[in-house]
Computed example of a mutant assay.
Amino acid sequence: MTAEELWKKSGLTGEYEAWGFGDDELTELVSSGKKTATSSAYACYEAEEEDLPEVGETSILLDDNDDAICIMRTTKVYTVPFKDVSAEHAAKEGEGDLSLDYWKEVHKEFFTEELEEIGESFSEDMLVVCEEFEVINV
């Protein structure tokens, strides 16, 4: 199903953004309800001159084949230094053993690669955009 088809089926109105994690394992965690949060490097928003997510925004999550999987609504957005991301947020991301140590390990690697693409370096003090969301059942 395409994003447009899912949006029409939902009966929701307004604007939405369709996007994917680029990793079907993360997509499955969202659709199963295990993943209710995500995070990204603040520097990437700045480099791409992109607005931060906002509470109430809706989006359609796509899998690696660009098929629409579910509709998500942002429920909370905040920015903290990497070193201050909480164990609660790490668990809400639904990955690995749900621990903060696991989250830091995989996100340090991910952010390092992502930041290199924009000429930036990873730092424990770098800002992380933490976003929480809910899946809207259709």
Score class of each variant (00 low, 15 high):
residue 2 T to E: 02
residue 3 A to C: 00
residue 5 E to V: 06
residue 6 L to C: 03
residue 6 L to Y: 14
residue 7 W to G: 00
residue 7 W to Q: 07
residue 8 K to N: 00
residue 11 G to I: 08
residue 12 L to A: 13
residue 13 T to V: 13
residue 13 T to K: 02
residue 13 T to E: 14
residue 14 G to H: 13
residue 16 Y to I: 14
residue 17 E to F: 00
residue 17 E to N: 12
residue 17 E to K: 15
residue 17 E to Y: 00
residue 18 A to C: 13
residue 21 F to R: 11
residue 22 G to P: 01
residue 22 G to A: 00
residue 22 G to Y: 11
residue 22 G to D: 01
residue 23 D to M: 05
residue 23 D to N: 15
residue 24 D to I: 07
residue 24 D to M: 03
residue 25 E to S: 11
residue 26 L to C: 10
residue 27 T to V: 15
residue 29 L to R: 13
residue 30 V to A: 12
residue 30 V to R: 10
residue 30 V to L: 13
residue 31 S to D: 13
residue 31 S to H: 09
residue 33 G to Y: 00
residue 34 K to Q: 11
residue 34 K to L: 08
residue 35 K to E: 10
residue 35 K to T: 12
residue 36 T to W: 00
residue 37 A to G: 10
residue 37 A to M: 09
residue 37 A to V: 10
residue 40 S to C: 05
residue 41 A to H: 06
residue 41 A to S: 15
residue 42 Y to T: 03
residue 42 Y to A: 05
residue 43 A to C: 06
residue 44 C to A: 06
residue 46 E to A: 14
residue 48 E to D: 07
residue 49 E to I: 03
residue 53 P to I: 09
residue 55 V to A: 07
residue 55 V to S: 11
residue 56 G to A: 11
residue 59 S to H: 02
residue 60 I to D: 09
residue 62 L to Y: 00
residue 62 L to H: 05
residue 63 D to V: 06
residue 65 N to W: 00
residue 65 N to L: 08
residue 66 D to K: 12
residue 67 D to K: 08
residue 68 A to C: 14
residue 69 I to K: 00
residue 69 I to L: 12
residue 69 I to W: 09
residue 71 I to S: 01
residue 71 I to T: 09
residue 71 I to R: 10
residue 75 T to A: 12
residue 77 V to F: 02
residue 77 V to N: 04
residue 79 T to P: 03
residue 79 T to H: 04
residue 80 V to F: 08
residue 81 P to V: 00
residue 81 P to Y: 03
residue 82 F to N: 12
residue 82 F to L: 09
residue 84 D to L: 07
residue 84 D to F: 09
residue 85 V to L: 13
residue 86 S to H: 05
residue 88 E to R: 14
residue 88 E to L: 06
residue 89 H to Y: 01
residue 89 H to W: 03
residue 91 A to Y: 08
residue 91 A to D: 14
residue 91 A to I: 11
residue 93 E to D: 14
residue 94 G to M: 04
residue 95 E to D: 04
residue 96 G to S: 14
residue 96 G to I: 10
residue 97 D to H: 05
residue 99 S to N: 02
residue 103 W to F: 06
residue 103 W to S: 05
residue 103 W to A: 09
residue 105 E to M: 10
residue 105 E to C: 02
residue 105 E to H: 13
residue 106 V to S: 01
residue 107 H to G: 02
residue 109 E to D: 15
residue 110 F to A: 14
residue 112 T to F: 11
residue 112 T to Q: 11
residue 113 E to D: 13
residue 113 E to H: 09
residue 115 L to F: 04
residue 115 L to D: 04
residue 116 E to T: 01
residue 117 E to Y: 05
residue 117 E to F: 06
residue 117 E to A: 03
residue 118 I to W: 10
residue 118 I to V: 12
residue 119 G to H: 09
residue 119 G to P: 01
residue 120 E to R: 15
residue 121 S to D: 14
residue 124 E to Y: 14
residue 124 E to Q: 14
residue 125 D to T: 10
residue 126 M to I: 04
residue 127 L to K: 15
residue 127 L to P: 08
residue 128 V to A: 12
residue 128 V to I: 15
residue 128 V to E: 05
residue 129 V to T: 12
residue 129 V to E: 02
residue 130 C to M: 03
residue 131 E to G: 07
residue 131 E to M: 07
residue 132 E to V: 02
residue 132 E to Y: 06
residue 132 E to G: 06
residue 134 E to A: 14
residue 135 V to P: 03
residue 135 V to K: 13
residue 136 I to F: 04
residue 136 I to P: 02
residue 137 N to T: 13
residue 137 N to V: 05
residue 137 N to M: 06
residue 138 V to F: 03
